[in-house]
Amino acid sequence: MKKSPLDHLLDWSGRILLTLILGFVLLPFIVVLIASFNDSAILSFPPKSWSLRWYANAIEYRDFGKGLVNSLKIAAIGATFAMIAGAGFAYVLNRYEFSLKTLLNSILMSPLIIPNFTIGLGLLILSTAASLPRSIWLVIGVHVIIVLPFVVRSVYVSLQNFERRYEQAAESLGAAPLRVLLTITLPLLVPGLVSGALFAVILSFNEFTASLFVVNQRTQTFPVAMYNYVREYADPTLAAVSVIYVIVVAALLLVVHKFFRLEKVLNVE
């Protein structure tokens, strides 16, 4: 079919619009990427001379290293707890009928409505009142609460799409319920579980607001360390950190994609 001039116009304006939107989405990162190579010690833009010294500074700065280790620890332990609890809750919500189901669902989803700083403040007051030490476990607790709804949702959706006939086939072949769970249900739910874990790790690693309330010098997370740094120095180190961060996360997603196919994990298929 031959295209009319109007079709051409719509075609081209559509392309331009898409390019602009994508440009807008990527703009912050592009600015930061350029700024990270600025030789000057103040965050001026555009840079006049170029250097890699802020990358060196970012890697050498001790608080970043400690914050990174804390954040990884918190994300790993927190996501593990959230996965176990979240998958359990999702299974219960999907498989059983009980009178307080709606209530349980609402409670599990409530961290989506309650702002992160409220969660942080709440646990801070509670820990002070109970004279709990401000240890890393307090931070992990806050993170578990924040990521739990995402894990529950993700696993719940996979369970909804799960074909029960697989389990029935296994049962008819003599598999007791635990064996069905371990050899059929769990292996087939792996994409949903990976998706939940991925959400949990990334959200936990990025979390800043709630963490700010419950960390101290020893337990500060990576984002909090970045915040503390920028309060003292205005050099492009943070831009360098940002670039490293983006590259690491992109690499992580590529690895997940290689093993599980991201479309499946993110339920966009």
Binding site: E163, R165, A169, S172, L173, G174
Partner: peptide, 20 residues
């Protein structure tokens, strides 16, 4: 008696072969 102790063979409409 639960299904796993009934010693029954089943073929389903969509076969339900374990994909993994």
């Amino acid at each position: 008696v639960p299904p796993h102790q009934r010693e029954i063979g089943i073929v389903f409409q969509n076969y339900a072969l374990f994909p993994h």
